[in-house]
Amino acid sequence: MEKKELLVVDGLKQYFPIKGGFLGRTVNHVKAVDDISFTIHEGETVSIVGESGCGKSTTGRAILRLEEPTEGKVVFNGEDLTKLPKGEMRKHRKDLQIIFQDPYASINPRQTVSDVLNEAMEIQKVVPKKERRDRIIELLETVGLNAAQADRYPHEFSGGQRQRIGIARALSVNPKLIICDEAVSALDVSIQAQVLNLLDELQDEYNLTYLFISHDLGVVRHISDRVIVMYVGKIVEIGDKHSIFDNPKHPYTKALLSAIPVPDPDRERNHIVLRGDVPSPIDPPSGCRFHTRCPFAQEKCRVDVPELVRHDGMQEGHEAACHFVEEIERGEVKPKELQVTTF
């Protein structure tokens, strides 16, 4: 059965102006997200991975219109969110919630947990006033806290517990899609596992859809159905989890995956070393944005922008934006200088 499309992002661009000069005019733009498109189906978990500055968080914020997108469509449940007036958008935020990395910074320290949850329900008018207290207690129990903690303040909780409060707040308005922006990145592994399992269980229970934004590839492999790899504002590869992790095609994805240290001392360690740093999104490289660091780069890569294409030997839905996927695969395009390290 074809799954229902819940969110369709089409040609999304997010440019931030850089003011400068004598008159404070806009002198340039940070092209944080530059023309990306993808679809999320109901009930699935899609992750966006990439390094700092690739535009993964900006994408999440643009979907919620926390920043107004410069261009493109964000179609949620058949309706283009970018066309809605502000007031209407607010009503729609009931369906799209976000959990941030640092729950301490995103929860008002002067509100008790019960106030925090109550406010969300008040704004979205999801539960009648009389039933709210019961709902709050139910929510706390759902996320593994208890009723006695309802009247405590955020500082009385540990990091993992605060993240549970963030999750409870997101759940309080019965959302369909939750964007998790580095939601477990600040947590220690033993606590991180608790929160990841919780997110997993909640997904089954409430048929939630997740857009998971993370730089931690271990977490991404664990939680995702599909993965989007971004590099300097563009999608370079998209596919189901196993295609991306076991059969990566884009040279950047390959380098990124090979760079992760694996918790196994006997594993063969060959890490592809990429030269230099990630280029600035203010003045991204021409053609393929990865060409300045790509060991396989050819003349064409400097000129033509590659499109996301499904090549031979790639699963349905697996696409990579590289001109030479097949040639690299067949060994016809060889790396110029492939530097490998073993730490």
Partner: peptide, 9 residues
């Protein structure tokens, strides 16, 4: 991670 690999190397 790609920079981490450089530094650890």
């Amino acid at each position: 991670v790609t920079i981490q690999a450089q530094i650890l190397g």
